[in-house]
Design a protein around this nucleic acid. Sequence first.
DNA 1: CCCATAATTAGACCACCATCTAATTAGACA
DNA 2: TGTCTAATTAGATGGTGGTCTAATTATGGG
Lengths: 102, 102
Amino acid sequence: MGLSDLFRALGDETRREILRLLTRGDLTAGEIADRFNLTKPTISHHLAVLKQAGLVQDERRAQYVVYSLNTTVFQDLAGWLLELTCSGPGSGRARKNEPGGQ
Amino acid sequence: MGLSDLFRALGDETRREILRLLTRGDLTAGEIADRFNLTKPTISHHLAVLKQAGLVQDERRAQYVVYSLNTTVFQDLAGWLLELTCSGPGSGRARKNEPGGQ
DNA sequence: CCCATAATTAGACCACCATCTAATTAGACA
DNA sequence: TGTCTAATTAGATGGTGGTCTAATTATGGG
């Protein structure tokens, strides 16, 4: 739900690679697991983390569970980025800050 | 250096709050520490993590160490975001992906 | 030189996390 | 129903991370 979950989810190389794979199209859990030198339970865990962070969605289809990107959350990320980078020096014009100041 | 360091650094609420403070202007380590209910060593640790990730810079000024935002890294983040969101379905037009499809 | 202040480093502690193997649930089908 | 495949959950383990207290380094002023 929160930004911490989001960033922590993105802080793992394997999970970012999963996201990259999903930009090419939806994949089942097994198809994803086949791309890595990790066990299925480990990948299942990573998928759960990504899902918890809202970065992916899953949908049961027969025996398979199909995962897909949730691009909505990336907008939240972009929003956070903008808010941070546009509210500081550059928008308001900052004064050179002396250590003793206030 | 890497994206993992960057995201992991951003995965902590305290560190994001430090970044937000720094958008208002440069601050000394002590001034930053005063804003939190945490000890100075803890804040010092967080600042080291942010510095390691390239998110802040520090500069010794007399007895003080002044910290400032390094906005360059946010461009890396924005670049990563764009690359991920623009290389998938939406730029190339994706077909609905059936599970059995290779 | 010695002391006071600013900040970091060292070391310990507990929680969380990535990973594995083994066991369990879910669904299809004969 | 029984069994096969897909996927997750349970439980264990080693490593990392956030926090603290205590000790150490760095700087300026009498």
